[in-house]
Amino acid sequence: MAELLRLEGVHTHIGQYHILQGVDLVVPEGELTMLLGRNGAGKTTTLRTIMGMWRASAGELGLAGTDLRPLATPDIARLGVGYVPENMGVFAALTVRENMLLAARDGAMDESRLEWIFSLFPALKKFWGLPAGNLSGGQKQMLSIARAMIEPRRLILIDEPSKGLAPAIVDALIEAMRELKRTATTILMVEQNFRMAQALGDGVAVMDDGRVVHAGRMAELAADPALQARLLGLSLGAHQ
């Protein structure tokens, strides 16, 4: 498939720390690519570097031929890139509706798209007029993802959406992500829940020590316990 996002030799420094040490990554258009790796491997830094929140100190970073390195985060968002951070980024004092409105670039929400989102996350409709701080952890995660979905995006970056959530909520997120995939939205997702990774991933890249050390198809990694153990130190089968 055609590539949408490409990183070549990307380095990122945060203060005195050299976090990304030559990341090479290709995200095909219309696919969900999983970014896996142990804690501290550089996965979150990769997403934040793509989003312009942290600046790449070297390398090439392009979205469909557009150089992202000189762009500020709002400019990258205007190219059609959505971001769901690990901390969810929900405004607790604002209502669910107000949180969604802030994510709509023109200040208006398409009603048909909003109803589609409600079909995926019914709790958001139920608590539409209430402060987002009243939501449970799982509901806040749904709101965070829904904000990225309120408009069609070329690319959505999602950082550990299942972290700390109950299995039933994770299952609901998996179904919602499957629906989003059916719209041919390109997704790059960091995830530690390997059941979710296996259920959703088309492609996979594994990071270690600030570099991508493996890239391929998710199904191939899921079928190879020896490769899982070598790259991740565990077997996906132990996390079903």
Results as ranks from 00 to 15, higher is better:
T49M: 07
L101I: 10
A104P: 12
F127K: 15
L114R: 15
L47C: 07
L101P: 07
A197Q: 09
H214E: 03
A58E: 14
G80Q: 02
Q141L: 11
V212Y: 00
V204M: 08
S112Q: 12
V81M: 06
A199P: 04
W128S: 04
A184P: 06
F91N: 11
R153C: 02
L61P: 11
G201E: 00
Q16D: 14
L143H: 01
I169N: 09
M51L: 15
N39S: 12
M53F: 14
V27M: 01
K140F: 04
T49G: 12
T45S: 10
E60C: 05
E179P: 07
V27L: 02
G82W: 11
A77M: 13
A64F: 10
D208E: 08
P70V: 11
A146P: 08
E8M: 03
H214F: 15
T12G: 06
M34I: 10
G107F: 02
I76T: 01
Y17W: 13
P85A: 12
L68A: 04
G203S: 01
K181G: 03
V213F: 06
M100P: 10
Q139I: 11
Q16R: 15
R55P: 15
A222V: 00
N99E: 11
E191P: 13
R195T: 06
A72M: 13
N99I: 09
D75T: 03
A219G: 05
I150F: 12
T49S: 13
G52M: 04
E151Q: 14
G237I: 04
V213A: 00
